[in-house]
Design a protein around this nucleic acid. Sequence first.
DNA 1: CGGGCTTGGTTCAAGTTTTAAGCAAATCTA
DNA 2: TAGATTTGCTTAAAACTTGAACCAAGCCCG
Lengths: 166, 166
Amino acid sequence: MTTRWLTPEEQRAWRAYIGAALLLEDALDRQLQHDAGMPHMYYSILSNLSESPERRLRMTDLAERLKITRSRLTYAVARLEKDGLVRREECRWDKRGSVAALTDEGMTVLERTAPGHVATVRAALFDHLTPEQVGQLEEIFSGVTQALQGGEPADVPWLRRSCSGE
Amino acid sequence: MTTRWLTPEEQRAWRAYIGAALLLEDALDRQLQHDAGMPHMYYSILSNLSESPERRLRMTDLAERLKITRSRLTYAVARLEKDGLVRREECRWDKRGSVAALTDEGMTVLERTAPGHVATVRAALFDHLTPEQVGQLEEIFSGVTQALQGGEPADVPWLRRSCSGE
DNA sequence: CGGGCTTGGTTCAAGTTTTAAGCAAATCTA
DNA sequence: TAGATTTGCTTAAAACTTGAACCAAGCCCG
C-alpha cells in the first residue's frame, strides 16, 4: 500500500504539537523540580492519590490512571516513600497487591505546591486559550486516548502494549 | 494573590491532554523502537537533518529546532554516530562549532522507516480528526510555543530556562 | 594587546525510564 | 484439586535525560 503522507496542514499541526508538548513538559518539570523537588509525573502521583477515596490506590489502578507502566510506578513510589510522602500498604483482599497511600506529609507538600503548579499550567496554556479552544482541546485528545487504548487497533499491531516480539 | 484553580472544563481538557500525550509518545516510541531501533526523538533528529540544506545542521540550531537541550542532543548524536547514521563534522567558520550531518545510511534508514511512522501518526491522531480540528490543533499549540519561548514571560520567572538558582 | 564576558559544545554524576525477567498469589480447567 | 495460566508487582541492567560543571574559541573594550 502506498503511503499517505501528511498534508501541509497536518504537518504544521504535528510540528506545533510536538514542539509545544516538549516545551510544556519541560516547563512543568522545571517549575515543580524547583518548588517541590520532584518531576511532574511524581507530582501527578501525589495529586491522583489525594483525590482517591481514603487517599490510597492500588498500584495497578494508579498506573492505569496515569497511563504509565507498573514498573515505572514502582520506581517512582519507592522514591516518594523514601521521601516520606507516600506509604506502601498491603492489600487485604489480594495478598499479591500493594496499595500506595498518601501520607499527611505528602498531602502537605501537595497543598503547598499546588498553587504554583496551577499558575504554571495557566501561564503556559490556558491563559492563551478561548473557552471554545478549551473544548476543542478536550475533544481532540479524548479522541486520541480512545484511539490508543479504548478502541481496538486491530490493524495497527504495534500500537498494542507488549505485542510479543515478531 | 489567591489561586485561580482550573474550572471543570479546563480540568477535563488538561487531563485529556496529559493522558493522551503520554499514550501518544509511548505509541510512537514503541513503533519506532520496533521498526527503526530508536526512540522518537532520535528519529526526529534524522528527519530534521534530512530536510536541511546539505543534510547538515549545527548542534545548537538542531537543538533549538527540536526544543531539547544541547546536552541531550550531544548524547543522542553520539549514539547515532556510533550507529553510522550521522557523522560529526567541524564547522569551518567557527572553530568551536560542530555540525551533524546525515549519512547515506542514515538517509536510507529514514526512507525505509518513514512510511510506518506516518501510518502510526495517522492511526493515533489524524485519522480521528476533522480538517477543522487539524486547524484547531495547530492554532492551540503554536500559541503555546509562542508563550513558552517566543514571548517574554516576565511575570513567570520559572518558565525561563536556566533561571539562575534561587 | 590582554583581561573579562559570552557562546558552542562536551562531560560526568545522579536520577529516571525501559525492557525483559522473575516471583508469588490468584484463577482457571480438566 | 493438581497443573497450567494469568495477574500483580518487583527487580536488574541497559538506555536515556538532567543539571551542573567545564573547556576552548570568539568577542568586547579599555
